[in-house]
Write a protein that binds this DNA or RNA. Structure first.
Lengths: 186, 186
DNA sequence: ACCTGAACACCGTTCAAGT
DNA sequence: ACCTGAACACCGTTCAAGT
């Protein structure tokens, strides 16, 4: 079977799940595919574009809530779906965070939220959606990193409940803030 | 002058400002100090602890608002001070973000905010402060990365006003949410 | 067109040996 | 105690040469 962009992405995902982002090297991807490292560059311009493709894969798995839900519930559901997708893959949150910061990746995860906010008549839907994204992303990165360090025995105590509480609290406050500014009374 | 932890941290800050986080290597720090790379390990256990020390330096520069301010104003002022400190140094936001995620670093930037929130009687001051931290941090990382990519000519358009608007909007909404839950009416 | 082999210019970290 | 010199086990990326 010939090498291809899809095969490289697939091997990347496999390595990501098995060894984590820190051990995902171009050389290891090449090894997995039984090929020399240089061969990858015939299909992929560089490592960052590979990482962007992997981040897109994570973001593709976000289960966007149905449009019928009331704004507050929709926002909480969207934040939960985003968080779930980020946590579903090893180092998913960190991968997406760096890919988004660099502006790479073909998927803008805020699009559905911007639409829903605009539909509800909320002012500044873009900045609002981006703020909620950053809140969820930052929390997920911290949670995932600490949970992995706990698994490695580096960190002695990791409280999954606290992480969930942090998430619920942060999103709840933010959504309340959106509500207090929304043109429609609840 | 003999090598020391302080000298290493100083050289690290210099390299950070001049070349950025991506080019901050132990070997370069050693070169700057006119010493072999291995010598650093007599004073610093590893690279991550050096990065944590640099992150502490960034967080030390946060100008905590005076306690007399009303809660809402205090939170906005704190978020602004945090953002200013992160943006003051090259790659400051990314440095602090990764250091915080790893749980390294001697400084917990949320401490003043937790105190102020607790004093105001807000429920769950810890999760609330952490949520606001993540919001500010995520926005700052994105802003700093994009501004640097713009300076390098990689990104054609970078709107500093949009970044500021994103920040003001996100923090504003969040603080409104805190307000709507606070026990004291405004 | 697609891949190999080999190189270039780096990394973080360790450690015997010197002073 | 503190540093050098040299090594170990890696990196991302490039590119002539082969098929």
């Amino acid at each position: 079977m010939a090498l291809s962009r899809a095969a490289i992405t697939g091997a990347g995902l496999e390595i990501l799940d098995t060894y984590g982002l820190g051990d995902l090297s171009m050389r290891r991807v090449a090894d997995t595919l039984g090929v020399q490292a240089g061969a990858l560059y015939y299909h992929v311009p560089n490592k960052q574009s590979l990482l962007a493709a992997l981040a897109d894969e994570v973001l593709d798995a976000v289960d966007v809530p149905e449009a019928g839900l009331p704004l507050e519930e929709w926002l909480v559901a969207w934040a939960s779906a985003l968080r779930a997708a980020l946590l579903a893959r090893r180092d998913g949150a960190e991968l997406v965070a760096s890919s988004l910061a660099l502006g790479l990746g073909g998927i803008d995860p805020t699009v559905p939220a911007v639409d829903r906010l605009a539909e509800a008549g909320v002012a500044m839907p873009g900045p609002t959606a981006r703020a909620l994204l950053h809140l969820v992303l930052g929390q997920a990165v911290t949670e995932q990193t600490q949970s992995q360090m706990h698994a490695l025995g580096v960190l002695t105590s990791f409280d999954a409940r606290r992480a969930e509480q942090d998430f619920a609290c942060g999103v709840g406050i933010f959504v309340d803030g959106v509500s207090s500014r929304a043109p429609v009374a609840r």
